[in-house]
Write a protein that binds this DNA or RNA. Structure first.
Lengths: 175, 175
DNA sequence: CCCGGTATTGTCCTTTGGTCCAATGGTGAT
DNA sequence: ATCACCATTGGACCAAAGGACAATACCGGG
């Protein structure tokens, strides 16, 4: 049986998950995230979720995810996977390498911290391939306002256009 | 194409893997372990392996693993998955992300096969953030021609714009 | 020789993307 | 209250992107 649940944005996903498990017992949950986030994914997985993927995945993709979970597996996106492996590697081999670490976190955490909530939200959506119009609909604001936020993000992150922003936020390019 | 390789027990698996990659270039490797071991798996994954599972898995299981890897995913057993999540949770205060990833990301192979040389060249440039004008200069052709190629790529890969193309070729999304 | 695929370029046109200048209202700190 | 920062929107304007329709030229195979 397949059920579609829309979580309340106001509350924590993990919290709602816990309720779900308590109410229904042994269910397998796959989370589709509008804007995938590694930290959120990790929390969800340790909360018992069996799959975590981009909500904008193709039908074929989703079928595959469903298949894997149905067979008792766990589904995790490639990028998150890599991240897990890398970070675990680092922890195991105990190589502090502070410089490299700081460099890599400065992209995701440091740079993003310069952005306001709204800007970050818009930035993630854009980096995921959304057009200004789509972002506007998702956020319930005018396309004009989206442009303002996007522009601000470009300045703060020194991105010259949305494509470069996407490359930066997705870790392809450090600059 | 599917190839069965039996590694030499005397030498390190990672070492033999490195040779394999050097010799064959862009191949996807799934490792079947007689006695699965978490540490070995981690090393293999950071060496570029796309799947790691028990050699005594069922045929159905193996088919599934193959399917996932073919679709550009990574396969990892459930127990190892849990372990990764747990150990990462512990050391999650700060997260690495970029450096190691950049080298290992070279997904494009499968989908690119439908493209002609020129189209592929243009597609790569676009996915790297180049504007049409820049691509034109790089290739020594007119901006108009670049548009033609870009348009062809969009059709063949079913990308709706250059940003989605970038996401696809950089492995964020397979749609 | 003719056909299909590739590469190239053209023009015209519409839609998006991005920037500039400017304004309003909310909120928290000083 | 005043100031700084944030979110929001408007209008104008220009550049870039992308689609529609079409032409020319090269090259290999039937």
């Amino acid at each position: 049986m397949l059920v579609w649940l829309r979580l309340q944005e106001a509350r924590s996903a993990v919290e709602q998950l816990a309720e779900l498990y308590k109410a229904l017992g042994d269910v397998r949950v796959i989370v589709l995230a509008d804007q995938p986030d590694g930290d959120e994914a990790l929390n969800l997985f340790s909360a018992g979720v069996r799959g975590y993927c981009n909500a904008h995945a193709t039908a074929a993709n989703l079928r595959q995810v469903a298949g894997v979970v149905e067979a008792g597996g766990l589904w995790i996106g490639e990028s998150l996977m890599k991240r897990l492996v890398v970070s675990t590697q680092a922890a195991i081999s105990r190589l502090p390498d502070a410089k490299l670490l700081r460099e890599s976190i400065s992209v995701e955490a440091g740079a993003m911290s310069a952005l306001t909530k709204r800007e970050e939200e818009v930035a993630r959506a854009v980096a995921n391939g959304a057009s200004n119009k789509e972002v506007a609909r998702q956020c319930g604001i005018t396309e004009r306002t989206v442009k303002a936020h996007v522009g601000a993000v470009f300045q703060k992150l020194k991105a010259r256009d949305r494509l470069h922003l996407a490359l930066m936020l997705n870790g392809q390019r450090s600059s």
